[in-house]
Amino acid sequence: MHICVCVKRVPLTGGKITLTDDQRALSTKHLGFTVSPHEECGVEEAVQIVEREGGSVTVLTLGPAEAEEQLRDMMAIGADRAIHLVSGAEEWDPQATAAAVVAAIGAEEQQPDLILFGNESADAGNYQVAIRVAHALGMPSVTGVKKITFESGRAVCEQEVAGGRDIYELALPAVVSVKEGINLPRYPSVPGRLRAKRKPLEASNPRRPAAQLEMVKLVLPPDSGKQMQVLGTGAEAAPAVVAVLSELGVL
């Protein structure tokens, strides 16, 4: 089975977000980066599927030059090769992103049987790239998947819903977006990291089309105006806490 997983490089923001002076990006000085959480689980899922069924895993990203770090990290946990669509400093909106992904996959010699995405990226959270790619490639899709198995050439996917899970069966090739919790991504081994340095990585520089959802600026949400009431320090605060709970009616 040949699986393609799309990932995105996102910063690790910690407790506070600060913006650049032009307010068009996060200030990432001194921030670490990672693959967006849902997507890391997607790569782990692909690697596990291929370990069971045979095949190969390609990891793909549309991102700046530094995103190579994330591609190598994903190859260290088992992806076999990487495709790096090098974007410039500007953001790509969901339609542009999907078009770039579709073009890259279209150019592939071996077409994937399964394309995995994260349900939404940690930063922009647009919830739509996977579905756009699916329609463009003429593939069925399902989102929010927490479990994938295969039966007679179909992907059986469990989507989390309120009160349980819906089971979808998709004919392959298909597009599935997964959610964190589908698995626990493995910790990369050093032999894996060293091999990853040598695994094939194809880079290209797609041209960014004009944005249809055109970001103008980023804004920090207004302060909630909350004034925290300190109920006390240590165990002595317990009575004050209980008084609050009683007031809220949860006691």
């Binding site: 923001t13 977000i17 103008v216």
Partner: peptide, 16 residues
């Protein structure tokens, strides 16, 4: 105006 980062950041964008 839409939500980013699960609500910790907002984006203002033109919807064409």
């Amino acid at each position: 105006t839409r939500v980013r980062w699960g609500g910790s950041l907002l984006e203002q964008a033109l919807l064409h």
